[in-house]
Every structure is written in C-alpha cells, then in structure tokens.
C-alpha cells in the first residue's frame, strides 16, 4: 500500500492517526476503564503502520501516547512508558510485515501483520516493564493478565475493526488498493 502513497500523504495520514490516538479514547471515555479493555489508542497506530510504513508507524506509536498524556493526562503516568514502547513496536512491525508479506490477498496480509505486531508489542512492553519500569514487581502472570485477559475485548476489536477500516478506506479510494486487480478479497 505504502509504495503508491505519496510521502506528503503518508506524513499527513500519520498526523491524522496521531490525532486519532487522542480523539478515539475520548469517544470511549464514558465507559469506565475502557482504555485498558478496548485499547482504542492502539487502532490508529496499527493502521498507520499498515498504510504508511514502519517509519511513520514508529512516529505515530511514540507521539500518539505521549501527546495524549501531555494534553489529556491519559494514559496515566504509570502506564505511559510501557504503552509507548508497545505502540512503537506495533507501528514498526505492521509496516515491516506489510512490506515483506505478499499472499496476494489483503485479509491474510493484514491478519499476519496485525497478529505478529500485537504479539511482539506485548512481549516488548512486558519485557520493558519487567526490566525497566517496574523492575522486580512485574510477573509473568501480571503480563498475561494485562495483555490478554483484561484486554481480550480490545484485541478482538483490533482484529475485527482494522481490516474493516482498511477495506472501507480502499473502497473510498482514500488509500490505494493493495491488490488492485483482485475481486472478493
């Protein structure tokens, strides 16, 4: 996808994704603890990496949570470093995977990239918390609980929503079709 998007467009789409990192969580703010459960901030970062490439995904992954913390106070201080590490990995890995994977069908490309990015992001975030941010206080059980048990609705949401959003963007010709000559991807 990224190779056909102009660099100006990638830059502006990245800016829009960073803004969505702040706007989307606000849409969920009426729901208690929605941030930890639905992970609304992850969606724009994953999409940015998929569409614009790993450099822009990385920028979005770092700037999104940081700008959100500065402007709205969310994510909370204790969560920000681990989250920024996680989302940075999301942005990088989705971008790299979309460049490397070409199954000739959009959905498998998306799912392989997303699942790889999410797993690696969770691992890096857990390692960062265990070794740096909460050294000595972060256990494997806590990691599994936070990454998968509490956040499973958010993971399902990402896996369902992101392909739907990507398809909608391709249909609206806002991003170039990954496989233009294909029908019924």
């Amino acid at each position: 996808m990224k190779s056909q998007l102009s660099e100006v467009k990638c830059a502006v789409l990245t800016a829009a994704s960073i803004a969505l990192c702040i706007v989307l969580p606000m849409a969920f703010h009426a729901i208690p603890n929605a941030g930890n459960i639905f992970l609304p901030m992850h969606i724009p970062v994953l999409l940015c990496g998929l569409v614009c490439g790993w450099q822009y995904g990385l920028l979005c992954g770092i700037a999104g949570p940081v700008l959100s913390a500065v402007l709205t106070g969310m994510p909370p201080a204790a969560v920000l470093p681990g989250m920024a590490a996680e989302t940075a990995v999301f942005g990088i890995v989705t971008g790299i995977m979309m460049k490397m994977i070409h199954t000739k069908r959009l959905l498998p490309d998306l799912y392989i990239s997303l699942i790889t990015a999410i797993l690696l992001g969770k691992v890096v975030s857990g390692a960062a918390k265990a070794l740096l941010f909460s050294a000595g206080e972060y256990s494997m059980a806590a990691w599994v609980s936070a990454s998968f048990v509490t956040a499973w609705p958010g993971l399902l949401l990402q896996l369902a929503l992101i392909p739907a959003v990507t398809a909608a963007l391709e249909k609206a010709k806002l991003i170039p079709a990954r496989y233009p000559n294909q029908r019924g991807r």
Binding site: K9, V12, L13, A15, A16, S17, A19, L20, V23, L24, A27, I43, P44, L47, L161, A164, V165, A168, L169, A172, L174, I175
Partner: peptide, 12 residues
C-alpha cells in the same frame, strides 16, 4: 469508529 477513520483520512 469506522466513520471517524473515513472522515479523518478524507480530511488528510
């Protein structure tokens, strides 16, 4: 969520 993304990308 989907309409917000479409609107955001259209503006971008």
């Amino acid at each position: 969520v989907i309409p917000v993304f479409l609107a955001a990308f259209r503006r971008a």
